[in-house]
Simulated assay, not measured.
Amino acid sequence: MPLTLPSLPYDHGALEPFVSATTLKLHHSVHHAGYVDRVNALVRDTNLQGLPLRAIVERSAGDPRQRSLFNNAAQAWNHAFFWRSLHAAGKRNSPSPRLAARIARDLGGQAQLIEQLKSAALSVFGSGWAWLVERDGRLCVETTANADCPITTGAVPGLVIDVWEHAYYLDYQARRADYVSGVLGHLLDWGFAEQNLLAKEAQHA
């Protein structure tokens, strides 16, 4: 079966005033949908047809002959992960004691993590992503350019912020810092981060 565009985990107005309903609808139903459609077209009648999206990303990574496929598949994967990295504005959300302890151990605390994520997001030249990941057993902040994503380099992603211009330009024009501050201060879903980063620990607790 072809890949399908995943539904948003909230309605189009849920991220306002930090991300407008207009931006979210365009971002999801045009940009994200376009990546999914192009992946389906590129894998049609190949041995990748019918595979899960993550498998397509991993199999096409690093292959110059598959660069177009990788770019579209990774962008589709990154966007699906980004939507789940956010929660509706106004929802109270903070790291659990277990996640807070890991953040403190590896990054110095939540305030330090937020500053690192902000610096990373603002440092991306052009288009890309700022991630909280686990790499080699420790939490860290990383950036990727364009469509690249940490699942192809051995890291476990916890949260991500999209800093492609289409994520914020209608609302903020060139004020990326204001967009990033709104996301970091009001929209990050720490429960999703814990699900990604501490799932193995929970299984063995």
Rank of each mutant, 00 (worst) to 15 (best):
G154T: 08
L184M: 13
C149N: 14
G50C: 13
V19P: 08
S94Q: 12
R98P: 01
R138V: 10
L122N: 13
V39G: 05
G158A: 08
A167D: 06
Q49T: 03
L113S: 07
R105I: 00
A100F: 01
Y169N: 07
S68K: 13
R176I: 08
A199C: 05
R84P: 01
T153D: 12
R67M: 07
A21W: 09
R59K: 14
T46Y: 02
A199P: 00
H28I: 02
A100S: 14
A88R: 11
A33V: 00
R138Y: 03
F82D: 07
I103S: 07
F18V: 09
N47D: 11
V36Q: 01
K200G: 01
L26W: 08
A21M: 06
F70K: 03
T152G: 04
P6G: 01
S181E: 14
W129S: 04
V39W: 01
Y35Q: 04
R67F: 10
S94V: 06
F82H: 15
A202Y: 10
N93K: 05
G128I: 15
D136M: 07
R102S: 09
R135K: 09
L99Q: 04
R98C: 03
L42I: 04
W131L: 04
R65V: 01
Q195S: 05
L26K: 12
N40V: 00
A199K: 10
A155Q: 09
L139R: 12
P95F: 06
G137R: 03
S94N: 05
G128Q: 12
V180Y: 11
A167G: 12
F125P: 08
A55Q: 15
L198Q: 02
E165S: 12
L8R: 15
R138P: 03
V133I: 14
Q49H: 07
T4W: 00
V156P: 00
R175F: 14
A120H: 06
A55E: 13
P97M: 10
R102A: 11
V124M: 10
A120S: 15
S119I: 02
E142D: 08
Q195P: 00
D11A: 11
D148A: 09
P157Y: 04
N196R: 11
A33W: 02
